[in-house]
Amino acid sequence: MENAGITCGAVCVYPSRVAGAVKTLDKIGVDIPVAAVATGFPSGQYHLQTRLQEIKLTIADGAKEIDIVINREMALTGNWEGLYKELKLMRAACGDAHMKAILAVGELGSMNNVYKASLVAMMAGADFIKTSTGKEGVNAILPVGVVMCRAIRDFYEHTGHKVGFKPAGGIRAAKDALVWLMLIKEELGNDWLNNHMFRIGASGLLGDIERQLFHYVYGRYAAASELPMA
Rank of each mutant, 00 (worst) to 15 (best):
M90P: 01
N195A: 10
T77E: 09
V146Q: 01
L227V: 12
A19W: 01
A173K: 15
P15I: 04
W80E: 05
T131L: 13
D61I: 07
L89E: 14
S16K: 10
E73P: 02
G125L: 09
H98I: 09
V11R: 04
K116C: 08
A177P: 12
E2Q: 12
L103N: 05
Y216H: 13
G207M: 04
A19Y: 06
V18W: 00
K23V: 01
V13W: 01
L76P: 10
A63D: 04
I209M: 15
E136Q: 15
A168S: 15
L227C: 08
V11E: 04
A223F: 11
P15K: 03
L227P: 00
A117N: 10
K100Q: 01
K162V: 08
E187G: 06
R17A: 15
N3T: 14
Q212F: 13
G82N: 04
I200Y: 06
G106V: 07
L188I: 08
K64S: 09
F214H: 14
A19C: 08
M90F: 11
L119V: 12
H215M: 07
K135D: 02
A168I: 13
H98N: 12
K130C: 08
M122A: 05
R72V: 13
S225C: 13
A97R: 00
E226M: 14
W180V: 05
G164L: 12
A21P: 00
G44R: 11
K130I: 05
T24I: 03
I171L: 14
A36V: 01
Y84E: 11
G164Q: 07
V120F: 04
Q53D: 14
F165D: 01
A140M: 04
R91Y: 00
H215R: 12
W80S: 05
T7D: 10
Y46I: 14
K64G: 14
R51F: 02
I152N: 00
V105S: 01
Y46F: 15
A60N: 11
F214N: 08
I171Y: 10
I102M: 01
M197G: 02
I32C: 08
G62D: 02
T159S: 14
Q49I: 05
N112V: 12
A92V: 07
G219D: 09
M197H: 12
A222H: 08
P167A: 06
V11P: 05
L213I: 13
E86C: 08
G164C: 13
K166S: 07
A151L: 03
L83Q: 02
G9D: 08
G164T: 07
H161L: 14
L205I: 03
E81K: 15
I59T: 00
P15T: 04
S132C: 12
I55K: 00
G170A: 12
K56Q: 09
A63I: 07
G106M: 09
E2V: 12
M111P: 02
D208F: 13
